[in-house]
Computed example of a mutant assay.
Amino acid sequence: MKTIGKVIDINISEKKGVVKKPVEQGVFIEDYGLEGDAHAGKWHRQVSLLGIESFKKVEELGIEGLNHGDFAENITTEGIILYELPIGTRLRIGETIQEVTQIGKECHVGCAISKKVGKCIMPKEGIFTRVIKGGVVKPGDSIEVL
């Protein structure tokens, strides 16, 4: 059975280490990442994803006023526990196919996200992918575990 999730938001920033802002759609380029985003490039962490479920955990800690993109995620998702996906898992997201390359990451010192939010959830629950097949992704698109 295929697991189906949903894209809630596409978020972008021109600089690393800052919160991202939602955009109407994202153009994802094969083996590069999200067009116009500071984290795109020919490396293993081209795209970052974080589930709305993780946002809810932080809100339950009493942190209010969170916006999608505050954790610097490119794609805010719903319906899939992302950090439980094995590395190498392929996802069909909108028109794209992306492969999970890393679960979590080290949070760098002086990170704007942990300063604003108080706690960054990306290091434990965010995942990273590389773009296998490029295309457009929009809020509302489905995410399918292949």
Rank of each mutant, 00 (worst) to 15 (best):
V18W: 06
E99N: 05
V109S: 14
E73I: 07
F55S: 00
K20C: 13
A40F: 15
L61N: 03
H39W: 03
I75Q: 02
R92M: 11
S54F: 00
E99G: 06
L34K: 04
V58D: 00
V58F: 02
I93W: 07
G69T: 06
E84I: 11
G104T: 06
V100P: 01
I80F: 02
V109T: 10
E59T: 02
G36Y: 13
G51V: 00
D31C: 08
E60D: 10
V27L: 11
D70F: 03
T77D: 02
T77N: 05
R90E: 15
T101W: 05
E99Y: 06
R92P: 13
R45Q: 13
G110K: 05
I75L: 03
I75V: 15
E73S: 13
N67F: 00
E14F: 12
I10Q: 05
R92S: 15
E53W: 02
K56H: 12
F55K: 00
I81H: 12
V27W: 07
E84L: 13
T89S: 14
K42G: 13
G88N: 11
I52L: 12
K16P: 13
A72H: 02
I63R: 02
E64S: 14
E60H: 04
I10A: 04
F55W: 04
K21I: 08
E14S: 10
D37A: 08
A112Q: 09
G88L: 12
V7F: 07
S48K: 01
S114L: 04
I81R: 11
I12E: 10
G110S: 06
P86C: 06
C111I: 14
K105G: 14
E14K: 14
T77L: 09
G65L: 04
E30S: 06
I93A: 03
G94Q: 14
F55N: 00
K115R: 15
L85Y: 05
G88H: 13
D31K: 15
E106A: 13
I8E: 01
Y32A: 11
I97W: 11
V109W: 12
L50K: 01
E73L: 08
E24T: 06
G65S: 08
I93F: 12
N74T: 04
C107G: 12
I113G: 00
I113S: 01
T96A: 09
